[in-house]
């Protein structure tokens, strides 16, 4: 079995066994196998992490609802329900940003772009992906800085004294993932520029 064949079957395995389900992830066919593998592997991680994020979202909903119900029924709310919800917002949002960019559904304006000639579209796409990667990796770096700050200052929530640092890890992971997705997309767009 050739290396190429093995690679192709790995991709096929990912697609068949791990990617179906509520999150549809299309494989980008760049015609360059290592890139396709990387892209699909990232997609896999994006998917699993986003499921975690959605679990956090569900938890937020239940915590607030139970808090309200207990308060109304027994005049005894859940201590610190609001700070639990606030901290869970971090995984609920940031564990999904990688997926959003993988699917290229970030909010953008395409009125002008779609009128560019194909060659120019490829160049612009490369440029924009480069800038996006730039700002996301800066934010990743700063997320690390902030993580250290939270740990160093023993940052805690007000009521339950929950350590905030573990929740913030979701933010670091999210920016790491979106940066990697942009990196793969940058190489893809470079290939497109070179090809044409």
């Amino acid at each position: 079995m050739s290396l190429k064949h093995m690679g192709t079957s790995v991709v096929a395995y990912f697609k068949r066994n791990l990617l179906p389900g509520p999150v549809q992830v299309t494989s980008q066919r760049s015609g360059y196998l290592p890139l396709d593998i990387a892209s699909n592997f990232l997609a896999l991680i994006c998917r699993w992490l986003s499921l975690l994020g959605m679990a956090a979202l569900t938890a937020i909903m239940f915590v607030i609802t139970i808090d309200v119900v207990l308060r109304i029924a027994l005049n005894r709310p859940i201590r610190g329900s609001i700070e639990i919800a606030e901290l869970l917002m971090l995984p609920a949002v940031f564990l999904i940003i990688g997926l959003v960019q993988h699917l290229k559904t970030n909010i953008s304006v395409d009125v002008l772009f779609t009128r560019f000639p194909v060659k120019m579209q490829a160049v612009v796409e490369f440029l924009i992906t480069f800038l996006s990667l730039g700002i996301c990796s800066l934010m990743l770096w700063q997320a690390f800085v902030f993580q250290r700050y939270l740990v160093d200052t023993h940052n805690m929530s007000v009521i339950l004294k929950l350590q905030t640092a573990p929740f913030h890890v979701a933010l670091v992971v999210g920016y790491l993932l979106i940066s990697l997705v942009f990196l793969v997309q940058l190489i893809e767009s470079l290939l497109k520029v070179v090809k044409k």
Binding site: I82, E86, M89, L90, A92, T164, L171, Y175
Partner: peptide
């Protein structure tokens, strides 16, 4: 400028005022 990048994502997401957005979406 760096400091803004490090604190804004945390401060504006872990904020109860914004919890309504995903919940009304749901």
């Amino acid at each position: 400028a760096m400091s803004n990048l490090s604190s804004i994502p945390y401060r504006f997401v872990a904020d109860f005022n914004f919890v309504v957005i995903p919940l009304f979406l749901l």
